[in-house]
């Protein structure tokens, strides 16, 4: 399994390199630059600025310097729009924020969604089954950009229980609403997927075999049915995890968390090449790592996949 992970990690290096190169050129293809503004800078100053950031060099030299700095110094360069900040600084400031509420959002989604789906499947057409269906419809009617203001309306303005925005070093009261707003629609999907997956598994012949052994239903559910039930949930969550910990731009902006989604928007507005590139690389690495983790989780559950990994 370790060997497999290493092999996968090595295979991702060329992918990352091509990604950097493509992003690098795409960004420069777009008209304008980080220092174009309504009122053009005097040519002498412009030249100075360009020199300071190495933008006066030929493109291939710029690219080479950029890659060299990343590989040897893990340095993603200075931000073009926020003086005195490096890309590393900005990521270090924003990423822990999204990682934190993204993590709790994932916990919220799984810890509630899976049990809800299980109960709905075991008690079809019961109260909890209807709750689940209702919830699924609710989350379709209220996507996060509608839900977030409603949450603030209720918990901040009406009840005064939770702060309506900010981060405050990640105090729990600041995490709840971003996490809930981010997770609700996924929660409904996870519950729905769990329900139909479990219903299908419970009809499988091997569950009947387990019943024929005289095992109590609870044992059958936990020992025999749960693992295979979770496989489609894991598949579904794999891209969602990436999305969650890289932060929803909307949630970041709406709750002013100072997360990385906010930084991405700022960078896009100001054509901050280095920040956009740095974030794109961060996203790709995260996508890769999470996909690997999901594949490993799959292998942990399914022995057929496991023997395929050897």
């Amino acid at each position: 399994m370790l060997k497999y992970s290493l092999r996968r990690s090595l295979a991702v290096v060329p992918t990352l390199l091509s990604l950097i190169i493509i992003c690098f050129f795409l960004m420069r293809l777009a008209p304008g630059g980080p220092f174009t503004s309504e009122r053009p800078l005097p040519p002498a100053i412009m030249a100075n600025v360009l020199e300071r950031y190495g933008l006066d060099q030929p493109l291939h030299i710029q690219l080479w310097t950029y890659i060299k700095n990343i590989v040897f110094h893990f340095d993603f360069g200075p931000s073009f729009s926020q003086r005195d900040y490096t890309v590393n600084d900005l990521i270090a400031a924003g990423f822990p924020v999204t990682l934190t509420y993204g993590f709790w959002s994932a916990v919220f989604v799984l810890a509630l969604g899976i049990p809800l789906g299980v109960v709905a499947a075991l008690r079809q057409n019961s109260f909890w089954d209807y709750i689940m269906t209702g919830f699924a419809i609710f989350s379709q009617i209220f996507p996060n950009f509608v839900l977030a203001p409603l949450l603030v309306l209720l918990f901040t303005l009406a009840l005064g229980w939770l702060p309506g925005g900010g981060w405050n070093g990640g105090h729990w009261s600041y995490i709840i609403m971003p996490a809930v707003a981010l997770g609700t629609s996924y929660l409904a999907n996870v519950a729905r997927i769990t329900r139909s997956s479990l219903l299908e598994i419970l009809g499988a012949p091997y569950i009947r075999t387990a019943r024929a052994k005289g095992l109590p239903e609870r044992t059958i559910l936990i020992r025999h049915a749960l693992k295979p039930t979770l496989l489609p949930v894991i598949s579904y969550m794999s891209p969602v995890f990436v999305y969650m910990i890289t932060g929803s731009v909307f949630v970041d902006v709406f709750f002013s968390t100072g997360g990385i989604g906010q930084k991405f928007i700022d960078a896009a507005y100001t054509r901050d090449y280095s920040v956009i590139l740095g974030l794109a690389i961060l996203y790709s690495v995260l996508t890769f790592v999470l996909n690997l983790l999901v594949d490993l989780a799959y292998a942990a559950i399914d022995p057929k996949v496991r023997s395929g990994l050897k």
Binding site: P205, R208, G214
Partner: peptide, 23 residues
């Protein structure tokens, strides 16, 4: 449940699907 497997056991028709693939 106290009779199943202990007093009366069953050999199922299809051995390809009646074993749990994850155990």
């Amino acid at each position: 449940n106290s009779i199943r497997a202990k007093e009366i056991a069953m050999i199922f028709q299809d051995p390809m699907t009646s074993l749990n693939p994850y155990m």
